Amino acid sequence: MALQEALDEEACLEEQILSLMHRFANRFTDRRPEINRLNSLPDDPLIEYGRYALGCMTGSDMKKVAYLKSVRDELLRSMEEKRQLIANYREM
């Protein structure tokens, strides 16, 4: 019984981590309209700086998103292995 409770808590934490990862990735992809809007504005030093800053943030976030995807894939693989282990244990 304690094992099942521990596994349930861990599954809840895993789902929360996945949710946070998806929110971060969505925040990154939601910048596309901002980038397109900035590119359609006339040239101005302030607008140029905005493009530069947004480009730096986007480049940094792209690296983070790529890393998060690999972590997410590892987490999903681990979750599936745990589910399989539990299913095999229950069959015994």
Rank of each mutant, 00 (worst) to 15 (best):
L3A: 10
L3M: 15
L3W: 07
E5V: 00
L7W: 03
D8P: 08
D8S: 13
D8M: 09
E9V: 05
E9R: 12
A11M: 10
C12I: 14
L13N: 08
E14W: 01
E15K: 13
E15T: 13
Q16P: 01
I17T: 13
I17Y: 05
I17F: 04
I17L: 15
L18N: 09
S19L: 15
L20N: 12
L20V: 06
R23G: 14
A25P: 01
A25T: 10
A25D: 00
R27Y: 07
R27N: 00
R27H: 14
R27G: 04
R27K: 12
R27V: 08
F28T: 00
D30S: 15
D30P: 04
R32P: 01
R32N: 04
P33W: 13
E34W: 07
E34F: 10
I35Q: 06
I35F: 07
R37P: 08
S40A: 15
S40D: 11
S40G: 14
S40Y: 14
P42V: 10
D43M: 13
D44I: 13
D44N: 15
P45R: 07
L46V: 14
I47W: 13
I47A: 11
I47L: 12
E48Y: 03
E48G: 02
G50N: 01
G50V: 08
G50M: 11
R51I: 04
R51G: 01
R51Y: 02
R51W: 07
G55R: 06
M57Q: 04
M57D: 09
D61N: 09
M62A: 14
K64W: 07
K64Y: 00
K64N: 06
V65P: 02
L68M: 11
L68P: 02
L68I: 00
L68V: 07
L68F: 01
L68S: 07
S70M: 09
S70R: 11
S70T: 12
S70P: 03
V71P: 01
R72I: 05
R72A: 02
R72Y: 09
R72T: 02
D73W: 00
D73F: 01
D73M: 10
E74M: 10
L75E: 00
L76Q: 12
L76F: 07
L76R: 06
S78M: 12
S78C: 08
M79P: 03
E80C: 08
E80M: 10
E80S: 01
E80T: 04
K82P: 02
K82L: 03
R83G: 05
